[in-house]
Design a protein around this nucleic acid. Structure first.
Lengths: 229, 229
DNA sequence: AGTTGACCAGAATCGTCAAACTGGTCAAAG
DNA sequence: CTTTGACCAGTTTGACGATTCTGGTCAACT
């Protein structure tokens, strides 16, 4: 078993246990056992429990980002902000840990919840923040008569509500995810896009730049994690 | 001091204390003192602490509803669903207790949080629920190609995010409430309204009916409260 | 008759302390 | 050189009784 594969197994185990029992109630011992290695081995790969968790968040963030990006590239109209938005939501809701992170679910994050009050995760902070929206506006993919801050707020509201669906609306009346996302994207494109919708390829180009930027941010954090070891 | 006025003072005191310290940490003794009456007097008006709180919720719900209704009637275009929606949000965010109720804020609701898992409040349950939306669709105020459930979800998402603003977005970048609500209403009207927007007066008529229905529901609950005494 | 506040039983809180557990280390085994 | 798991120090948990607090009542007072 290679080094990278073992690290990956440890992260898999941590992911399963933490999304199920929460950060606080998951012990390093359990993670090691679930991963089929000894506890010492865990400390060979990570500085400590916190660093392990952070590494896990980075990995899952990257996965969600890759997932989103793949969906965008595969979709002819994927570069429109509202398709971008839809693909981002689909990717995010699929990943339990990222969902917990985005909704600041204390049952999963435990003590870490406080840490995220200050430090926004790459996912959250950069994805639909002011700069991001301004960029899309400049490229003619969003109406320019709205301030970027306002657009950001609207998009974050919907994203938050969407990821909270299970908690706030009775599941028996919830339509399929695809139907909701489709309606959302459609509504947004009619409500926030300029006449003519803007050019999808331009949007894709922007997204490639952003994904690269996000990836760089993630790698930088990874580097810091390693250096602290 | 009349009987009704004293009851009102007790509710005022309870409102102040509970929105500030939360249900659990507010004692009947403090409520009585704040209201300038004895503890016994509180029990003359209400069966117990729970009944007092429920009465408070009913009063505040009714106030928010009245507020919303007044805004709608005063607005020439107030009958459009999206103006209705905007007025409902403005009214709701103004009232701390209703905001806490709508966001299921445990710090304020305390033990009561659980009770609302099953029993939806009139405000929440009826306001933008399936039936309500279906009604507006039938009246030609919302596109008919979307299922009422889907529309409900979209609206609830935005409402939830909007009422959570303070908790999820840094206040320094938050535009004025009016700007956000205006953008939201505009976006919704472009995205979810049929061509031609529909007739505002029709919407107002529907709203009058709904408000009457809500008021009846509130009065019924009030009656049950009194009966249990 | 209408109000009050002292009073009560049960619940929550505090303080304590021993047992169990947890993150982290490292000598020893492989 | 890599990996392990017994081990350690510090923390958390839980049981316990003492003490305070809280919702609710009711005899006494106005």
């Amino acid at each position: 078993m290679g080094d990278a594969e073992r690290e990956s197994r440890i992260l898999d185990a941590a992911n399963d246990l933490i999304t199920h029992y929460g950060y606080d109630k998951t012990t390093v011992d359990e993670i090691a056992r679930e991963a089929g290695v000894s506890k010492g081995a865990v400390y060979l790969h990570f500085k400590g429990k916190e660093a392990l968790f952070e590494a896990l968040l980075l990995r899952e963030s990257e996965r969600v980002m890759d997932d989103m990006f793949a969906r965008i590239e595969a979709d002819p109209e994927g570069g429109t902000l509202f398709h971008v938005y839809g693909h981002a939501l689909r990717a995010a809701i699929t990943n339990p840990l990222i969902r917990a992170l985005s909704t600041r679910d204390r049952r999963v994050l435990g003590d870490f919840a406080r840490r995220f009050a200050n430090m926004a995760s790459p996912q959250d902070g950069m994805m639909f923040g002011r700069e991001f929206i301004a960029h899309f506006q400049a490229a003619g993919l969003i109406r320019r008569d709205l301030s970027p801050e306002t657009v950001t707020h609207l998009l974050v509201y919907m994203r938050y509500g969407f990821l909270m669906t299970e908690s706030i609306l009775p599941p028996e009346h919830t339509p399929p995810i695809d139907e909701i996302v489709a309606a959302m994207a459609d509504m947004l494109s009619k409500g926030l896009a300029p006449d003519g919708q803007g050019d999808s390829e331009t949007g894709k180009a922007i997204m490639r730049g952003y994904v690269a930027q996000l990836r760089a941010a993630i790698d930088e954090r990874r580097g810091k994690l390693k250096k602290d070891e």
